[in-house]
């Protein structure tokens, strides 16, 4: 599921009994958040099937980096649900407690995207945001589907 496990940048799913774990890895915290968001999209559909035609902006603020990650995923889940959109490209900037991000995608096309399941929310289960080695950030949690 990680495209290449030696690559310092990537995403994967990890197993959970009823739900799915999303994990992003990047050289910065922001990049790990971007990768985890790709893992989120991949729960619903094939990322490649989503054209990055429309841009939306997202911001969040939280003094706790792990809860900032949950806020980020929850904001995306809210946008996916209310705009009925899927996203395939993300750009995240984090400055201190503030996250500002852009997400590119398109409205759900049931035939083309074959969306498997809607995501209800991010949980605090297996929640981790940490710099594991220098220049290797990990961001992960279980999401409820």
């Amino acid at each position: 599921m990680v495209q290449n496990s030696t690559d310092p940048v990537g995403w994967e799913h990890f197993d959970h009994d009823a739900d799915v774990g999303v994990r992003g890895i990047g050289v910065t915290q922001a990049q790990a958040f971007e990768q985890a968001a790709l893992a989120l999209t991949s729960i619903v559909t094939q990322i490649e099937s989503v054209e990055p035609r429309q841009r939306i902006d997202i911001s969040a603020e939280n003094g706790d980096p792990e809860l900032l990650f949950v806020d980020w995923l929850d904001a995306l889940i809210f946008e996916m649900a209310t705009r009925r959109m899927l996203f395939s490209r993300y750009k995240v900037d984090i400055e201190g407690e503030r996250l500002s991000a852009r997400a590119w995608g398109e409205p759900v096309d049931v035939n083309r995207h074959q969306p498997a399941v809607e995501i209800k929310g991010a949980t605090l289960t297996e929640l981790k945001v940490e710099e594991q080695d220098e220049g290797q950030w990990l961001a992960q949690c279980v999401v409820d589907v």
């Binding site: 809860l67 806020d71 209310t82 949980t123 289960t125 929640l127 409820d144």
Partner: peptide, 30 residues
């Protein structure tokens, strides 16, 4: 539907952030 999901999402985080202030020692933040 979406209403319940959003309520669960919001209150889970709010409870996690206020547990320490309310004097509850949680075995796990979840």
């Amino acid at each position: 539907r979406g209403l319940g999901h959003q309520i669960g999402t919001e209150y889970l985080k709010e409870m996690a952030q206020s547990a320490a202030g309310l004097g509850i020692a949680l075995p796990d933040r979840e």
